[in-house]
Design a protein around this nucleic acid. Structure first.
Length: 279
DNA sequence: TAAGATAAGAGGGACAT
DNA sequence: ATGTCAGTCTTATCTTA
């Protein structure tokens, strides 16, 4: 039994059985922040509200006019100082806000510190390349997070990331591709087998059937019908077939729901697998 | 009721113009 | 850059066992 700190799943090291999916909290060792970040966090507090964020940035306070005098003067002076500072540190502010969002999203997806750090790294790169300019922080940070999980082969779908970040799948996908293209990210191809434990445990499929599903996917790979297909759909179909083969038939509907694909997709993959593997 | 079939529409990659 | 093409996935609806 091993805790996969990366994907946030408690997994049997032998069979891949997911004992508990989406573990919320297991102690400080894999969900603790470094001292630096702790400091950052406590200083930042709750996620910066949109209303608060732009104060002092969107409006530049000009040189003091003649109309300002008396004790108003010191106030204006102070405001101007703040103004300058916040501009000088606008990158910091941007980062802080971005990372604050990142934490929120990662938390909702039960992602490990490693995934968060990878995402933060990618986001920094994106900033350096000026990819954030003209786009929202949210969309780039979410895309960075998705890129991070893809890079680490953690089974989280575009759909899931889009949902926790309140983005449309389409927009997230576009910015993810932007990152991959502009930053020359080398992503491992998504392996359907990675998604099997997750789907299987959600759908309540036995260990035996999971292993069968793994075999089906391995053979599908051999047969070369895996490329270009949605890995989730492929994994879902394999699990469906496995459940039938093992005599514990689940409904396509339930597996579709667990994998977040449609029944039709399962049927299409299922059809292909059937002919390719002679089942 | 579950599963198969069919059709229309969206979004993106490959490739040509 | 822009357009076309083939392939995938989604939603919706109808049919079949």
């Amino acid at each position: 039994m091993v805790l996969d700190a990366v994907s946030g799943e408690l997994i049997c090291s032998n069979c891949g059985f997911v004992v508990k999916d989406r573990i919320e909290e297991t102690g400080p060792e894999w969900r603790s922040f470094s001292d630096d970040q702790k400091a950052d966090r406590s200083r930042t507090g709750l996620p910066t509200s949109v209303a608060q964020y732009d104060m002092g940035l969107s409006t530049v306070i000009g040189p003091s006019g003649k109309t300002v005098s008396g004790n108003m003067r010191t106030t204006v002076e102070r405001m101007r100082t703040w103004d300058r500072r916040s501009q000088a540190h606008s990158t910091d502010r941007n980062m802080r806000r971005a990372f604050s969002e990142l934490r929120t999203f990662a938390e909702k997806l039960s992602l490990s510190e490693e995934a968060v750090e990878r995402a933060a790294y990618i986001y920094r790169k994106a900033m350096e390349r000026g990819l954030v300019r003209g786009r929202s922080i949210t969309t780039i940070i979410a895309a960075s997070l998705y890129a991070s999980v893809r890079d680490l082969s953690i089974p989280r779908s575009l759909k899931e990331v889009a949902s926790v970040s309140a983005l449309k799948r389409k927009d997230l996908a576009r910015d993810y591709r932007l990152l991959v293209r502009e930053l020359d990210l080398k992503m491992p191809i998504a392996d359907p087998a990675r998604s099997v434990p997750k789907i299987a445990s959600k759908a309540g499929v036995s260990e035996k059937a999971r292993r069968t599903a793994f075999e089906i996917l391995a053979r599908a790979k051999e047969a070369g019908i895996s490329s270009g297909k949605d890995p989730m759909g492929l994994a879902a179909a394999a699990i469906y077939i496995a459940s039938v083969l093992e005599g514990e038939k689940k409904r396509q509907k339930d597996i579709a729901k667990a994998a977040e694909v449609t029944e039709v997709t399962i049927r299409n993959r299922y059809k292909g697998l059937k002919v390719a593997l002679g089942i």
